[in-house]
Computed example of a mutant assay.
Amino acid sequence: MTDNGKPSEELVTVGRVTTVYGVRGWVKVHSYTEPMDNILQFPNWRLQGPKGWEALEIDAGKRHGKGLIVHVKGIDDRDLAARLCQRDIAVARELMPELERGEYYWHQLEGLKVVSHFDGEDHDFGVVARMMETGANDVMVVRGGADKRERLIPYLPDQFITNIDLEAGVITVDWDPAF
């Protein structure tokens, strides 16, 4: 755990407990995984608490309506389950499945510097502050850079994303600095 309360390098945030469900200790979960029920592959979660990341074992989980509900081992009461709400869920990074070449997890892209060589000139757009899903495609929210602007750049490899170099920490885009 880092001093700012964010997961350390060994943990990846994969969702959030939102609210209680029923009276037997179940909670609703907003998953950041794709598809959303992939979060259920990880039975050992870490839940962000006031004293850092706490271990949490899931003993049941399923789709419910448009979301997910889970049951935490040892919690069979609505009031106890309420203590878990509005807290981030993380899992150990080494538990994340290996991706194919050219595929990246969002956490790998966040924090990378974004540059463009548009019209023969170099432009520093800042860093990827976060990723977001829009339905049509994912979008990089890029902040900072020389002009201190926020840009929304579609995450479309081979269209706008021309290179991703994780070692150098740089994403090269084909993007007009006026946008």
Rank of each mutant, 00 (worst) to 15 (best):
F42Y: 09
E54V: 12
A82Y: 04
V127N: 02
E100K: 11
A136R: 15
N38R: 15
L109W: 08
V127L: 02
L47S: 11
W53C: 04
M96N: 10
R46V: 04
G67E: 04
K73D: 06
K113Q: 11
D77N: 14
D79L: 11
A55P: 10
L99D: 03
V91D: 00
A136C: 06
E103V: 10
P43F: 09
F42I: 09
D138N: 07
E94G: 05
Q48C: 00
G67Y: 06
L109M: 13
E133R: 07
M36R: 11
G61H: 10
D88M: 11
M132S: 12
F42Q: 05
A92S: 12
E98Y: 01
Y104K: 11
I69C: 00
A129G: 08
A82M: 01
I58N: 06
K73V: 05
H123P: 02
L47W: 03
Y105C: 00
M132K: 11
I75E: 00
M132F: 05
G52A: 00
K73T: 09
E133H: 12
H107Q: 08
D76E: 13
T33I: 07
L112V: 04
R63S: 12
R87S: 09
V72L: 07
S116Q: 07
E54P: 03
D76N: 13
E121N: 15
S31M: 08
